[in-house]
């Protein structure tokens, strides 16, 4: 051992420091992740007595002290789908513009800046905007439509950013090859760029769904209500001009306004909300991993 090359006290100290740093940084990373697992575990444990399919498919009753979450879940579904129908095409096309058409100019710079800022606008300001623009100015009143539009604008930057990333991953040489044979820009996009970035685009759209499903502030004043009675089992119980309940809003209400609800009720509601959001996210992650594994080039 005495002849081990380079084993001086200095090097030993260096190696020890390195190990310490690795452990400390690793613990910091874990410190962000472990609470997630602990909290989810705790919520599920407390919610366990109430969790059942029945809970999902029955309406809340007795001033939201009993029953399930059906009307809220259905409302969230409506809000998410309508906002998706609006935000997905606009967002994808905006990203196509930024990545495929826009030249390097001040306008492009401003658009990119606007996207970044749109992503940073607080959700409560989106709520004020939705109230001012859609509910009052456009005269939609508090409705699913107004709330969905607000959600759509809020989630637009998410879709733009992820779609742009997906488009940028398609090599430039493919585009050049298409241009060289006389294809127009759009033919190139339609024939080569979109088919080869669709998985990335879908991932972004799915993430939009999960974000829209969890938002509370933007729908509070634009279309969501504390309580609304609807027919159980009818998936078309709401119309676009109705107000609706929403899962996120429902959780807020029974946590802060309904004080004498059974202990497990808010936990169960939180688990349903968290579960659906994480499920959607997990789908996006799985999709991404799978499609990364079978690239075409």
């Amino acid at each position: 051992m005495a002849t081990t090359f380079g084993e001086t006290p200095f090097i030993r100290k260096k190696r020890r420091d390195e190990a310490i740093v690795r452990v400390v940084l690793g613990l910091m990373a874990l410190a962000m992740v472990v609470p997630l697992l602990l909290i989810v575990g705790y919520l599920v444990e407390r919610a366990w007595p109430l969790l059942s399919l029945d809970f999902v498919f029955t309406n809340p009753t007795h001033g939201m002290r009993e029953g399930g979450v059906w009307s809220a879940l259905l409302g969230t579904l409506y809000l998410v789908s309508v906002s998706l129908l609006i935000a997905a095409p606009v967002g994808v096309l905006a990203a196509v513009y930024l990545n495929e058409y826009a030249k390097k100019s001040w306008l492009t710079r401003i658009i990119n800046l606007a996207v970044v800022n749109l992503a940073g606008v607080p959700s409560i300001v989106h709520a004020l905007f939705g109230l001012g623009a859609f509910v009052l100015f456009a005269g939609m009143g508090r409705s699913i439509l107004a709330a969905s539009l607000t959600l759509a604008i809020m989630t637009l930057p998410v879709i733009i950013a992820s779609t742009k990333e997906a488009l940028a991953a398609v090599p430039l040489s493919f585009r050049e090859a298409c241009w060289n044979v006389g294809a127009t820009r759009w033919q190139t996009i339609r024939g080569i760029v979109l088919p080869n970035s669709i998985s990335g685009i879908l991932t972004g759209v799915i993430l939009q769904v999960s974000r829209a499903a969890g938002e509370t502030a933007p729908i509070m004043f634009t279309g969501a209500v504390f309580f609304k009675r609807i027919e159980e089992g009818n998936p078309f119980a709401y119309s676009l001009s109705d107000q609706c309940m929403a899962l996120s809003m429902h959780l807020f209400t029974i946590t802060t306004q309904v004080t004498d609800a059974p202990k497990a009720l808010p936990y169960a509601t939180a688990v349903v909300l968290l579960g659906s959001v994480l499920l959607v996210n997990a789908c996006a992650i799985l999709l991404r991993l799978r499609l990364r594994a079978r690239k075409k080039w």
């Binding site: 993430l207 909300l273 994480l278």
Partner: peptide, 10 residues
């Protein structure tokens, strides 16, 4: 990523 997905109301 999942941590980022937890809704603020939760």
């Amino acid at each position: 990523e999942l941590l980022a997905a937890i809704p603020s109301v939760v």
